[in-house]
Simulated assay, not measured.
Amino acid sequence: MRTLKVQDVMTRNVTTVREGTPYKEIAAKLVNSGISGLPVLSPTGVVVGVVSEGDLLFNEGSAGKHEHWHDALHPAMARKAEATVARDLMSKPAVTTAPNTPVRKAATLLARHGYKRLPVVDSVGRLLGIVSRRDVLSAFLRPDPDIAGEVEHEVLLRTMSINPAQVDVAVTDGVVRLSGRLERKSMVTVIESLTHAVDGVVDVVNELTYESDDEGLRLVDPVDGTQLRDLW
């Protein structure tokens, strides 16, 4: 099965700033680009951090505060409150992803960290592009017939060596409904897992039945009792 990767959906033309970019220039780029955060690059193009609207607003909101208020802050936050350039305003290290990362994994990273976008970097950390929540969501716009076709031909036929005629695959708004009768329970479990991994699948309703429950059965060496391999 071909899995949709970050490189398939990312934006390659990225607005960035350098470590020495001043506050007002950062603010102007954010406003003019209509985005909420910018990668901060080193002189060699390596992503060293991300500066966001929140970083700038924290700095602005701290202006005029009593000096004891600054003393109570964590050192990193106190430094940000007084910052005037990107290297001191930015959040670091940046959470990044690689171009060959599956889109589903990138979605998990975005959700886990509460970010709106992730810089995409090469093996040494140089910026290649950026992937946003909107880019990730594009994977779920895949037409239902395309999803059904991949489940039938890639999951059932090519991966599981099962005649697609044995399983009814119905897809509605990305929700895959599987029904039919198979020989073993382990087949049912694997098919459901593989179907979940198909790009564009929102959910899987598994109505497959089976003739025998082979889960947990193992072939054992009659001499020493060690497991040889799974039965299926």
Rank of each mutant, 00 (worst) to 15 (best):
R104Y: 08
V9T: 08
D8P: 06
A28R: 15
L137Q: 13
R18S: 14
D214S: 11
M1R: 07
R12D: 09
V167H: 08
M187D: 12
E152H: 04
L38I: 04
M160G: 03
T209E: 14
P145F: 04
D122E: 05
G180T: 10
N206D: 14
E25L: 12
L57P: 06
A28P: 03
A139F: 00
E150L: 07
S193M: 07
T15V: 15
S193I: 02
R177K: 15
M90D: 02
L118H: 11
N163L: 09
G216P: 03
M90A: 00
T97F: 03
H70A: 13
T21F: 06
L118K: 03
A63I: 14
D146K: 11
V171M: 02
A86K: 03
N13V: 04
R142P: 07
K29M: 15
L128I: 03
D8H: 12
G180H: 02
I147W: 07
T209G: 14
R133N: 04
T44N: 14
R117T: 06
G114Y: 01
T189S: 05
W232F: 13
G20H: 05
V131T: 10
L110E: 07
A76P: 00
P164Y: 05
G45N: 05
V131S: 10
A139C: 02
G125T: 12
K105T: 14
K116L: 11
A83F: 09
L231V: 15
R87I: 07
D221K: 06
D203M: 04
R184T: 13
T209K: 05
P75E: 13
E53Q: 14
V50S: 14
A148H: 04
L118F: 05
R181Q: 13
S138F: 05
R12T: 13
L128C: 06
S212G: 00
S33H: 11
S91C: 11
G64T: 05
M90F: 01
A78T: 09
